[in-house]
Design a protein around this nucleic acid. Structure first.
Lengths: 75, 75
DNA sequence: GGAAATTTGTTCGTATGTATA
DNA sequence: TTATACATACGAACAAATTTC
């Protein structure tokens, strides 16, 4: 679940693609809550900032929605 | 009691060290309850987040214990 | 039992400084 | 110079546990 920070792919793109893949494969389903952003940062071995960027990408794609104080959910 | 945010020492370390010093000097004794975390934040002029980090350090050192809904006590 | 106040716990939102490519 | 990435810190919203009346 870790990200390769040395590869040609940007870290936040790798994270976004990984989460998108989990949604597409049905590992994450509509309404499911993702782990907290700061926990995802630890899971992927990246910074909170990188998770924020990845989440922004996924929100723009309409794959997730985020609620202040509650969490991030599969759309 | 305020913290120096411009110094090289991290804010949460400064807070943890200050509270540890008060315990070591006997100003705070076993069983004493500390002020609420959000009040400590105001006292030290730092954020709740910083107090939480400081408390985590002190818990790891075994100097305090925290009870949900009750408060934080000197160990 | 129930409501309110107090206090800690969790989670997202934002800003800043530093390092690197 | 700009964009990426990391870490710290401050702010805001939501939730749970405890006590008291």
């Amino acid at each position: 679940m870790k990200i390769d920070p040395t590869g040609p792919e940007l870290a936040y793109v790798q994270v976004a693609d990984d989460i998108a893949g989990r949604i597409e494969r049905g590992e994450l389903r509509t309404g499911d809550r993702l782990p907290p952003e700061r926990e995802l940062a630890g899971d992927y071995g990246v910074s909170y900032d990188t998770i924020r960027r990845a989440a922004e990408v996924l929100r723009e794609r309409g794959l997730i929605r985020t609620v202040h104080g509650k969490g991030t959910f599969v759309a």
